[in-house]
Design a protein around this nucleic acid. Sequence first.
DNA 1: TCAATTAATCGTAATATTACGATAAAAAAT
DNA 2: ATTTTTTATCGTAATATTACGATTAATTGA
Lengths: 106, 106
Amino acid sequence: MGVSKSEKFTEEQNRLAAFAKAFGHPARIAIVQYLLEVNACVCGDLVDVLPLSQATVSQHLKELKKAGIIEGEVEGRKVCYCIDKDAWNEKLELLDSFFIKIKNCC
Amino acid sequence: MGVSKSEKFTEEQNRLAAFAKAFGHPARIAIVQYLLEVNACVCGDLVDVLPLSQATVSQHLKELKKAGIIEGEVEGRKVCYCIDKDAWNEKLELLDSFFIKIKNCC
DNA sequence: TCAATTAATCGTAATATTACGATAAAAAAT
DNA sequence: ATTTTTTATCGTAATATTACGATTAATTGA
């Protein structure tokens, strides 16, 4: 089929998966890396940073927005993108509870 | 198209994306959670843990193996699955360098 | 007002993912 | 040797993702 049976999993499992999925493409990693690097809102030059067309970059930005990782604010005729700070730190806690260092196994 | 232009991104970006992608499905989150929870190799009862068919679970296990997150070892007529401890901790470092707490932005 | 700029959306094509029944392959039990 | 158990793989169908050119919508500048 190809349809994800999300209703069969817990809320936490679905949230973690959705968060991970948003980072599941190098372009989206690159976007977030860039936003973290400049440590500010970036207005309008994201397309130049990526080796992809404007339409494709816009699509990736939409994914990141959908996942609550970035925010976009219209500023004149440009759009300013930012890391969604609150969501980011909240999701880091989700991650922390999942990605524990393994001490001993097997 | 639909083909990921991985050659246009850095090695680190591709590695992070591949790692994240492996966790981009609730079933795979559930599998890893279970393996972490029991903190041991699990021989043969993974299908019972998930609300999916045997074939589908096997496919998800294959994905996790491909991403270097788990290992499977044949043990008699069963297969024992484990977190790949070394890879796990190595990838945690990748994550740590990426997911930094944001102090102030915008 | 009209042209230019910027980003989103539409339309479309190619490829990937998800899911499962059926089948195969390997080992253990009878 | 045959049957049973267990997991992987095959075949297939449905849906999702990725990518880009073209178009649209909104705003600014002339």
